[in-house]
């Protein structure tokens, strides 16, 4: 057990957990931020995607011990006073089926669009390829990322 300080969605938090605890379980079990999902635990599905200093990471594969002092954003903190354009686009195109993978999809998309505000279709397909959607809502995810890019420009 050790004590860690980090910023999650703009708020400072202090947690006491084992140092090998993945960020995913810190978020879900300690901080009750359950929007970040568990899908595989080995970095293969993207359901657990959050931002570390604005960049998408797989929270299931990052132990808390490497995150002291870092700045984390989860799906619960993606919107500011209004929805993030990615969330807007997701809503407008009615993307989700079961919805379980979608937080991870949106976190990947929002980080990607920050790096590449003007993506073409291949860019989008490459960027989103690491996020599984078992319901196969891929067509709409692809369209929603493009729409979000348009909204952001």
């Amino acid at each position: 057990m050790a004590s860690y300080n980090l910023k999650v969605n703009g708020k400072s938090v202090n947690i006491n957990v084992d140092d090998d605890t993945p960020l995913l379980w810190v978020l879900r079990d300690e901080l009750n931020l359950v929007g970040t999902k568990y899908g595989c635990g080995i970095g293969q599905c993207g359901a657990c995607t959050v931002h570390l200093d604005g960049v998408a990471i797989r929270s299931c594969s990052v132990p808390i011990s490497s995150l002291e002092g870092s700045n984390i954003t989860t799906i619960e903190g993606l919107a500011s006073d209004k929805l993030h354009p990615v969330q807007d686009a997701w809503k407008e195109l009615d993307v989700p089926q079961c919805g379980y993978c979608q937080a991870g999809q949106m976190m990947t998309a929002s980080s990607f669009l920050k790096q590449n505000p003007n993506p073409n279709n291949d860019d989008i397909r490459n960027a989103m390829n690491g996020n599984l959607c078992r319901c196969a809502s891929y067509n709409r995810i692809e369209k929603a990322v493009a729409l979000a890019a348009k909204k952001m420009s």
């Binding site: 999902k37 568990y38 799906i75 993606l78 989700p96 937080a103």
Partner: peptide, 23 residues
């Protein structure tokens, strides 16, 4: 007519909805 999924706002904001989210 198209009607958006009734849970859409909860899904896009990461609100607890699923079994795994229940505590």
């Amino acid at each position: 007519k198209d009607a958006t999924n009734v849970d859409i706002d909860k899904i896009i904001s990461g609100a607890p909805l699923f079994g795994l989210d229940y505590t």
